[in-house]
Simulated assay, not measured.
Amino acid sequence: MSIPGQATGSPVRPAASQPREGPPRIPYDGTEPFPHDPSVHRVEVPRWQLAVTALVVMFPFVALVLAGWVLWGRLIGPTDIALALLFYTVTGLGVTVGFHRGLTHHSFVPARALKIAMAVAGSMSFQGAVIGWVATHRRHHAFTDRPGDPHSPFRYGTSMRGELRGLVHAHVGWLFTADVTPPARYAPDLLADPDLRAVSRAFPALCVLSLALPFAAGWTIGGTWHDALTALLWAGLLRVALLQHVTWSVNSLCHMIGRRPFRTRRHDRATNLWPLALLSFGESWHNLHHAEPTCARHGVDRGQIDPSAAAIRFLERLGWVRDVRWPVPARLDPRRQT
């Protein structure tokens, strides 16, 4: 069976830098709440860090209050829409193409300048420093939906109450836990890269830049405080909030709702959720991703929109990425559910 959009390139193969999965440390039957694991690395999270995390999570509510105040009797302008789309696309692809498919799973090899640019763009999404983000996601793949997964929605079991509680945990609750993912174990390749260490250290400054640029663009284009503030609201605060919750929805909804056309490992419940495909730049074709994590294209079937794969294709044609791991039918077809 042919796969639409397939191109020649390097076949999908395991990423050598990703941690090898071992057997579960403690028994788990796939339905009960995750048993306590004393070997999990836990630290006491400083209160200031919890406060900062809470502030970031509260962005949607702050932005809605500001929107009601700013837009009372006024309409959003075309400049605000254009800037919001621009910054959403740049920072969103920084996460999906840069953080995820490139740096986490090595679906392609980027030129050095592009690697740095993608890491900077992804950092401006307010989703964490690049090395920590990659380490957490690799751990998620090593222990998907079983003990050790940092944000599985099945952490509290498969009863209705457990799944509702788990949905909240998988979406935002895991951000407030003391369960720390050690980068030395899950992202040693990034720790060994001086460029990525520098970008990771610059994360707070890049968050400030992520809001300062829309404000400056609004001021430059419109020339008034109102133009600067509406640009900050729509292309800054609301853009950050929307992208965060779309990404977190892949962690939560894309393990509970949707179709599973491909077989995954035991307990792995990753699904395809088409309504999120465009907003997530193709990340919500999550079932295929968990079946073949290093594949550069997640939407492999007809009609599955995958803007991240299109961006990788464009970069490949420019010569800025190489060794792209495009889908190979001979590998994917045996994984299809009958």
Rank of each mutant, 00 (worst) to 15 (best):
M1W: 13
S2H: 12
I3C: 01
Q6E: 14
A7M: 09
A16C: 00
D29Y: 10
G30E: 14
E32F: 00
P33G: 03
P33C: 02
H41P: 04
R47K: 06
A51I: 02
A51E: 09
V52C: 09
A54C: 10
L55F: 15
V62W: 13
A63D: 06
G68M: 04
L86Q: 03
L86P: 05
F87H: 07
G92V: 04
L93T: 06
G94V: 03
L114W: 09
A119F: 00
M124L: 06
M124C: 15
G128E: 11
V130R: 00
H137G: 05
R146L: 15
P147M: 08
D149P: 12
Y156L: 08
E163S: 12
E163L: 12
G166L: 01
H171Y: 09
V172A: 11
D189H: 11
L196E: 11
V199M: 10
R201N: 14
R201W: 15
L206Q: 05
S210V: 13
L211H: 02
A216T: 12
G218A: 07
W219V: 02
A235P: 04
G236D: 07
G236R: 00
M256I: 12
G258A: 10
F262H: 08
T264R: 12
R265S: 11
R269D: 15
N272F: 05
N272E: 14
L279Y: 09
G282H: 08
G282E: 05
E283R: 02
N287C: 13
L288F: 15
D301F: 05
G303P: 08
P307G: 02
R325V: 00
R335N: 04
